[in-house]
Write a protein that binds this DNA or RNA. Structure first.
Lengths: 247, 247
DNA sequence: GCCGATTTGTCCGTATGTATC
DNA sequence: CGATACATACGGACAAATCGG
């Protein structure tokens, strides 16, 4: 099943850049040239190039061209803008990722949990604690809460395989987007017990709220990362100051 | 000087969402309706909506509509995808931001600095240490390195005002993009001396490499944030797995 | 300084595909 | 099945920035 054309072109150019087929700091072929070469419309090519800008591979300059600013060293550890499971992330970085379930339970959101997660108080939830290993080192402690009415029938056995595959393939849940916030927090006793913290007493925390196509937030996950193996990457562009519009 | 139309529409819809003029969880008017109301093309509206998706304000669903998933609580402390000066960021969050220059010096990149920053060894640099206060609390320690040949004529006096205004307005430097990486590091003696660290021995570090329109990285800045006041926000979308393309 | 060629940025209209209801 | 809504793709037009003659 072939994907969208702009996505294919994006991947094609991305791999061409990564493999050094465009010289560093050099300009890519012009839009006109690439359109002819790839047999697509201008909009389609521009969309693909826009994605390359977002991931920091190129910079575009009106009147000049598109410059390759990719640098091999800085491979992203955790990517931005796309939802990726731990297994997918590990594979992309050529790591050996394994997981262990420490706790599988059911509970009801009390006031404190509701405030933290964004679920309504009284919502029945599954609560799962998972420990993720990269190359046999325990590096991520995961606290996940799933709404029972959405992730219905979730079991410890399923969680040991893949929760997302169950949600998408068995329950036909369509996962749309995930709001994520990165913060730094003091390590808890649980963190110190399970993660190899060295002499750090803080860790990187990625809190994410995930939504389905009904607009309901069905998952709240807090990923607590051992600091030395945490890396979050972004590319920002300079824009003129924003201004409102009267309609 | 009016901005791009899609940008105006983006701002217009963004403010309408923020001010609660669309009910939470409700669908926005359809593309067709908004196109008529705003008198623009489909592409233009879709581009504006695409930006709203990126900042986590709405989710789009084929065949259903565009849902408002904005939540007032989650105001971003540090935004993503755009380059913002400390002053701009403080203003957006309604904080009183002040800065202090601790050091203004010139140096040449040695091997260690070159490896850390990405400058070539031997590059002449300005090195500036700045302390940023929010509401009179010292929260961010900034180490900035600027290429002397690009940021030529930079002085301590200029740095006390606004470096970016000098670069853009006086030197007519065009700033294109900035690659940023968020990590967590052990606090140094300098951090402990100047920042109010409490009992934390780690902090959030945002390292950024900024490029101009010649494709040269002219700035490397390491922002070291007191953990309690650090928040980095992102919105991710679930996409089908990527696939390459043969041309 | 000017002008024309090149290149990217913005905007429009239309057609078709696909998912939802 | 049809109507509606978003997703993708195409082609054309003009604007804005850059560069060279």
């Amino acid at each position: 099943m072939p994907k969208a054309k702009y996505e294919q072109i994006f991947q094609y150019l991305k791999e061409k850049i990564e493999s050094g087929q465009y010289a560093p700091q050099a300009l890519l072929p012009s839009e006109h040239t690439l359109i002819a070469e790839l047999d697509c419309s201008r909009n389609t090519l521009r969309r693909a190039v826009g994605e390359l800008v977002r991931i920091g591979y190129v910079q575009t300059m009106q009147g000049k061209g598109v410059r390759n600013i990719f640098e091999p060293a800085q491979q992203a550890t955790f990517t931005l803008g796309t939802i990726e499971s731990f297994a997918e992330s590990a594979a992309r970085n050529h790591w050996r990722g394994t997981s262990e379930i420490l706790l599988f339970s059911e509970l009801t959101a009390n006031a404190a949990l509701a405030a933290k997660t964004g679920f309504d108080e009284g919502t029945p939830l599954y609560y799962i604690q998972r420990l993720h290993y990269l190359n046999d080192r325990p590096l991520i402690f995961n606290h996940s809460y799933f709404r029972q009415d959405v992730a219905r029938g979730l079991t410890r056995e399923i969680a040991e395989q893949s929760i997302y595959r169950y949600l998408e393939n068995e329950l036909h849940l369509s996962i749309i987007n995930s709001k994520r916030v990165v913060t730094v927090e003091k390590a808890t006793l649980l963190d110190l017990q399970y993660l190899d913290m060295g002499d750090c007493n803080c860790l990187a925390v990625v809190s994410s709220q995930t939504y389905n196509s009904d607009g309901v937030m069905f998952e709240y996950t807090q990923s607590r990362h051992q600091p030395n193996f945490f890396r979050f990457q972004d590319n920002a562009v300079r824009r003129p100051v924003a201004q409102s519009r009267s309609v």
